[in-house]
Nucleic acid binder design. Structure first.
Lengths: 198, 198
DNA sequence: AAACTATACGGAATGCCTTTCCGTTAAGCA
DNA sequence: TGCTTAACGGAAAGGCATTCCGTATAGTTT
């Protein structure tokens, strides 16, 4: 790779990071190239699909998220480790403006993104999940990928709702992963009464 | 309203229904107007925002969904009624190609859509939810609107997954709404063992 | 250090789509 | 029958993604 190409890639990643923070992950191509001081052709040459650019920009944070799984797994009991990591994951996905939407937009420019992200994150979470399952804490009928995909869906920012909305709903979903003896959810979950519907 | 205008509105609704089925709710305006045999100006005059068109096209089905709540509430116990209606709702949202995405796209053309839909559907579901809550079946810390919004998120079609994926994950979320004594979910939920994490 | 070659550059061009605008048409009424 | 005005249709304007290709230059060879 020629040295000018190398420089431009760095400049583009830098610019994209700024642009993503400012306008979300579908910032107009021109905004990025102007910031980087290159032509649009150069952007498309190095990152033909938007997902290539996003993955490259986020690679650091992805790695950190992956690493956190091992740490949490070593520190906490299985269920607590699982919950903590999912919180971190949901924050990662929900905080990057537009990332959650891009993940499921159907726009071909983002086709590779879910694959790429999940391929990296799934093994990390899979370890936590199997521990929780074999310990009897979590239901056994969901795959790791199912959970990650669904939390990405739940993390879409909803206009008119606080960011905490997504966290609360993620928590409900995670509660649904528990087998029984639901943990206190901290907001007045009542002691239950049985019913006859099942 | 002039009679030709009346006719065109009908033609547009018809065409939009077809186009939505064929290309999803963000079918190009031209596809719709060509089908209807009118100019694009006519589309925008009658339906300035895309959401106006969508709501008009779906109004029938929305009404049916609202009506179903009363029926189910009268027929089943509270929890079963709640679960059944949510299944119906999720199918409605998930089946219309692109509707779930449009609901949370952030595109200003769809700004009114969530409001409009939820304003109609929320009261129907609210009745079911409060029954379930006061009967002690469902947790009390979620609002009806929260549940509808979240199920709309979970109902986004995910490329590479069966449609049943969304149903299964919706089911996990709904399980999370239960207070205790989770119902059998039908796919090998194991009898639980307690743990010490809570 | 000059010439050469292949790599990479920039931005104009293309294509698709939304949305607006306005000259033209025709519905409904007197 | 003629008038008024609501409504029409499609051209035009604007925005953005993506491609294409003539030009520039890094790196290499002599």
């Amino acid at each position: 790779m020629r040295s000018d190409a190398q420089r431009n890639v760095v400049a583009l990643l830098d610019a994209a990071k700024t642009a993503f923070a400012h306008s979300g992950v579908d910032a107009p191509a021109k905004e990025i190239t102007d910031l980087a001081g290159v032509g649009v052709g150069t952007l498309y040459r190095h990152f033909p699909r938007r997902s290539d650019l996003i993955v490259a920009v986020l690679q650091n944070e992805i790695d950190e998220c992956v690493d956190a799984a091992a740490d949490l797994g070593a520190t906490f009991e299985p269920w607590q480790a699982l919950v903590s990591w999912l919180e971190r994951y949901a924050e990662f996905v929900g905080t990057k403006r537009g990332l959650a939407s891009a993940l499921h937009s159907g726009d071909p420019a983002y086709d590779d993104l879910p694959q790429h992200l999940l391929d990296q994150l799934e093994p990390a979470f899979h370890a936590l999940l199997s521990q929780a399952v074999s310990g009897g804490y979590a239901r056994a009928d969901v795959r790791a990928r199912d959970v990650l995909t669904t939390l990405a869906l739940i993390s879409h920012p909803v206009p008119g709702e606080q960011p905490s909305f997504n966290q609360r709903m993620a928590r409900v979903f995670v509660d649904g992963l528990r087998l029984v003896n639901r943990v206190e959810s901290g907001r007045g979950a009542r002691s239950g009464v049985g019913d006859g519907t099942e």
